[in-house]
Design a protein around this nucleic acid. Sequence first.
DNA 1: GTTGAGCGTT
Length: 551
Amino acid sequence: MDFVQVSEEEGDEPIELPAEEDGTLLLSTLQAQFPGSCGLKYRNMDTKAVRGVRSNEGRLFPPSVDSGWGEYIYFCVFPKENKRKSDDNLENSTAKTKRIETRLRCTDLIVLGLPWKTTEDSLREYFESYGEVLMAQIKKDVKSGQSKGFGFVRFGSYDAQMRVLSNRHLIDGRWCEVKVPNSKGVGHQVPCKVFVGRCTEDINSDDLREYFSKFGEVTDVFIPRPFRAFSFVTFFDPDVAQSLCGEDHIIKGVSVHVSNAAPKAEQSRSHQGQNYNYSSGNSYGMHSYHPQGNHMTSHPGRSGHHRGNNQHNAHGGENPNIANSHSHSHSHSHSNNASGGYGMGGHNYGGNAGGGYHNNSSNHASGGHINRQDGGAPYNRQGNFHGMNQPHNGNVGSGGWMNRGPLDMPNLQALGINSQGSSSSNQGQNMNNPLGVGLNLNSLPINPALVAAALNQWSLVGNQLQNQNQDQQGGNFLSWMAQNGGHNANNNVNYGGRKGSNNPNNSGPGGMIKVDNSSCNDQQNGCAPGNAGWSNQSSGSQNSVEKSNFL
DNA sequence: GTTGAGCGTT
């Protein structure tokens, strides 16, 4: 068996860690000795530079295929802001402060999909590699003592919590899912994950990780198998993820498109609590605080315009909730491009920026600025998600899509199809074309609402949804319009009349397409119940405007 | 003794 010499920091005394038969070193092996570490690096004697060790799927790969790990002494990579030494300092100097913050910010996390055999000790042992575990419990049958297959864990640091939430977890041989429990209400989950569309088959997870690492630490890369032309990249810092959304990037000569990926967990969680009206400006004010305040500043270095979906269309200002709920600190790009402005008003909040939801991780340790190395200045491209900590596909993209294969939806996004870019007049409009033909309501020289009404009249839209959404009253687009006074502040009126989509509670037919891999436990493919969410989202409709914007 | 979506006898 090969051993790899690893020290915590360069110059420290190394520990020999056993490599696997295939020559790789398990991340879990590393973390067993160096909790919190996320990778390895070493000093290249030739260049005198520090080189990183390739890491993928929980495995660290030796630098050389031939000579393996060689005689290098490797040292640990720790997540930024999670360096153990600074942690120690924190412990010593501001222990009390830390404890207070912990109380404020950490929450119990539910761990789903645990193997029956997992004990509280092994659960704790697993998560301790992320940081201090304050509590680890397995829910058991009171009589038999048998595990129910889920448990709870609580961390001592918010960073650890965030890291755990943004990763998949292989616990005692099974992929498990960690979420903020429903009972906690909407918690601290953040959209660290982005959807990368237009991927080609030769773009592997290493390529994605390597490429996107320059923007910030990548905690996970997931490529659905079989090949589906898209993938997911998860960043440690949600702001990094956000900053990339809407952009095209070139990887291995291929232009890929980054957009928002809304975790299924967020969707399902919205089942509880209020019946959000995503199509109403009201949703904007659901949480009137402004959690990402310092992210909303205008950032010099870009044009000053919020690209993509951030335009504030049709400033009608009908909705007082919008008008009063906060003040903007960022520079708007007020593009009065609302075609007609029918049914529109107010700002385009709640909107169409990539199906996103606004996380409330205002305290996240990013400082609000993202060090981009591509010359771009950091700025918030999704400024229309103020204060929302619920997922809200303002673009009302769910529902509908009847008789469509589950691959159609993600493929639209995978192919980078959207209405942005070439037609600036179309930005922020997010008109859904229910016919699925090359018709863009927005581009028509008539009131799109009338078009929608006509479609409604022809029973081309809306009616088939009657039974899918019992908690919505009307039956079609017109009745919906009537209910909403015809001037709903939200621009993302679903002109397709897929009313079911206006309600996040609707997860019924036409909404998310369940990809049931719950019985699959193939670790190689990352297939486990816990992963179903990420699969679903790509098959479902909650991804982003770029899908529902088109069609 | 089996099982695999969910949400915690505090």
